[in-house]
């Protein structure tokens, strides 16, 4: 078969070009660290890598959300514990009042009860990173202020009103937030309620147990005619009965609060386990992503060497093609 000079050079040129293209591709794979230099190289791998990368980003975002909410729930837990302690303190005061035979220190106990109430209200006004913990979705001072002009900008406030026969101290607690739940996404498929509402905390209206404490205060600090209880005056049977009922209500709320603290603790555990899962999943996804898009350096280096050899031989063949012709022999 005849071989034309043109076809020799055409084949040589094509082989040289192919070889240089392959060397360049391997070079790029090593220098960029990416296996696929084009979406056409391995389309499904390119798409998978993209998908894994996005999922990793999402998980990282969820991890951030989980960490910040774990902090919030932990603060809620601490606050619940403190409120719970205060309720227990109120119960102790009631027991003290019931047991005393002289009534000598009723006034002091009444002041302690009022102090405990103020402490509880103060604890209920706690915030996490500027957001109130127990005011539903009205988390900012501005929300509270806008909805309740003329009052302070906290969700719970002790208000001093006029004395009435049923409330001789005239005290009341106002709740200015709402009882909406705050949900956040903690993974692609799960969300978590991360707040405790005022109603969950203090009963209906968000203030029931606080009102009970005021009632306790009224019974201890005031006599049945609504006057301040004179020193060394014992509580009568009816008052003791009322006090007992109130103490029971406070105790019920105390129990509720302990249950709530357990629920809160369970949420923290859930967030912790989700965090562990997401961190593990990210490691796994990163491995998959890497397998899909990162260069296997050892393989690429071997390929590069192989292609360089091919190119070198191609160049040598080219130089021989140039030497071998009859004109050279004749000249």
């Amino acid at each position: 078969m005849r071989v034309s000079t043109n076809s020799i050079y055409r084949d040589y040129s094509r082989n040289l070009n192919d070889s240089q293209f392959k060397v360049n591709a391997e070079n790029l794979r090593i220098s960029s660290g990416k296996k696929n230099l084009s979406i056409a190289d391995n389309t499904s791998d390119v798409i998978d890598a993209d998908k894994f990368r996005n999922q990793i980003s999402k998980n990282e975002s969820y991890l951030e959300i989980i960490k910040s909410n774990t902090d919030r729930l932990q603060q809620t837990d601490t606050t619940l514990q403190s409120i719970s302690d205060k309720l227990q303190e109120v119960r102790s005061f009631v027991v003290d009042v019931s047991k005393t035979s002289t009534g000598y220190n009723h006034f002091a106990i009444a002041q302690s009860i009022k102090g405990a109430l103020e402490d509880i209200v103060s604890l209920a006004n706690s915030d996490n990173n500027g957001d109130y913990l127990f005011s539903g979705t009205m988390t900012s001072p501005q929300n509270i202020q806008d909805a309740n002009p003329g009052m302070n900008n906290m969700p719970f406030e002790i208000e001093q009103g006029p004395a009435t026969p049923t409330n001789p101290s005239g005290l009341s607690v106002v709740f200015k937030g709402n009882n909406e739940k705050v949900n956040v996404n903690i993974s692609k498929t799960a969300s978590e309620e991360v707040n405790t509402t005022a109603e969950e905390l203090f009963g209906p209206g968000g203030v029931e147990v606080l009102q009970k404490i005021i009632d306790v205060y009224n019974v201890v600090a005031y006599d049945s005619s609504g006057n301040q209880r004179p020193a060394r005056t014992l509580l009568n049977a009816q008052e003791l009965g009322e006090l007992n009922t109130l103490q029971k209500d406070v105790a019920d709320r105390y129990d509720e609060m302990n249950i709530m603290a357990s629920v809160n603790g369970a949420k923290i555990n859930r967030l912790d386990s989700t965090l562990d899962f997401l961190e593990y999943e990210n490691l796994r996804l990163d491995e998959y992503r890497s397998a899909k898009e990162d260069t296997d350096i050892a393989e690429a280096a071997m390929n590069l060497k192989r292609e360089e050899n091919v190119l070198q031989f191609a160049l040598q063949v080219g130089s021989r093609i140039n030497q071998l012709n009859l004109f050279q022999f004749l000249s």
Binding site: R2, V3, T5, L326
Partner: peptide
């Protein structure tokens, strides 16, 4: 080119 191509050796 095996048919119509020029082969320089052949032409030489």
């Amino acid at each position: 080119d095996t048919v119509i191509g020029v082969n320089l050796d052949e032409e030489a």
